[in-house]
């Protein structure tokens, strides 16, 4: 589904990703861990098409297409979803209205019929069931005045409604209390599907207690320095990121 090959990315004149490679197949859940400043958000942003990132080398193929050639909205329509580390407030724009406009824009781009407001409300009601998201959030402006946890859960709710093929969650767990964390995990687990892939960007192993990944990758200094199964997360938790560097001194320094 997604094949990242030797990706080099510059931000504000500085090389942040330095030859990152990663392959993600449908149905898989990949966790990307790494210290602050390693380039985790950079990866998510580049995949979603944010401006200001210069790809100097390497390629990203998504469903056989060159992902980097697509506008962000085209990537969304093609099934790429990024849950933001810091969701953005849009004052005065109703949350439900926003989500319907987004869904319909994607459907239109894919040549599917748009949903009228009744059909959409039905969908929202259905998706809200498992979410424990306060329903009144749907009548407020997008993320405006939401608590940190509400913003993160709203991202997961958007994901549930938009039903992406490739969902990238950027530190959706950070700043959540244990109950909110469980809710987010339940939301993600409910969406696990043989046709859908997840990239979970996280700083802590905590989230992975509730969403068990198929693969764990350690990102340090702009590249993947270690990959393994779910157990790798536990080892990281026990030994810290320095442990990876010590084990792979040659690569980490290269």
């Amino acid at each position: 589904m997604l094949k990242i090959d030797n990706l080099h990315v510059r931000v504000a004149g500085r090389e942040i990703l330095k030859g990152l490679s990663l392959q993600v197949n449908a149905g898989e859940v990949h966790a990307i861990m790494g210290p602050n400043g390693a380039g985790k958000s950079t990866l998510g942003n580049v995949l979603a098409g944010r401006g200001g990132y210069e790809v100097t080398q390497g390629s990203v193929a998504y469903g056989g297409r060159d992902l980097l050639q697509l506008e962000p909205e085209a990537r969304a329509a093609a099934g790429v979803f990024l849950a933001f580390q810091y969701p953005v407030e849009i004052p005065g724009v109703n949350n439900t209205y926003f989500l319907r406009a987004a869904l319909n824009a994607q459907r239109k781009a894919r040549g599917e019929a748009e949903l009228d407001s009744r059909e959409f409300l039905q969908l929202v009601r259905e998706k809200l069931k498992g979410m424990q998201l306060p329903p009144e959030l749907m009548n407020r402006a997008v993320n405006e005045g939401f608590s940190g946890g509400e913003k993160k859960r709203n991202e997961i709710f958007q994901m549930a409604v938009l039903e992406p093929k490739l969902a990238i969650l950027d530190e959706t767990d950070s700043g959540l209390d244990i109950d909110a964390l469980k809710q987010v995990a339940e939301g993600v687990n409910a969406l696990r599907d043989p046709k859908r892939a997840f990239i979970l960007i996280t700083h802590y192993q905590r989230l992975l207690d509730y969403i068990v990944p198929d693969f764990v990758h350690v990102l340090a200094d702009g590249r993947v320095v270690e990959s393994g199964g779910a157990h790798l997360a536990q080892e990281l938790e026990a030994h810290g990121y320095a442990w990876v560097r010590e084990r792979k001194p040659a690569e980490a320094a290269a």
């Binding site: 098409g49 962000p72 909205e73 990024l82 969701p87 005065g92 406009a101 824009a105």
Partner: peptide, 23 residues
């Protein structure tokens, strides 16, 4: 970018943000 990453094109995103501003 937030709007576009959800599927809205630039013009729709701008008019939505402006509309919200005028609400």
């Amino acid at each position: 970018f937030y709007c576009r990453s959800r599927g809205l094109d630039e013009e729709n995103a701008v008019s939505m943000i402006v509309d919200g501003f005028c609400k």
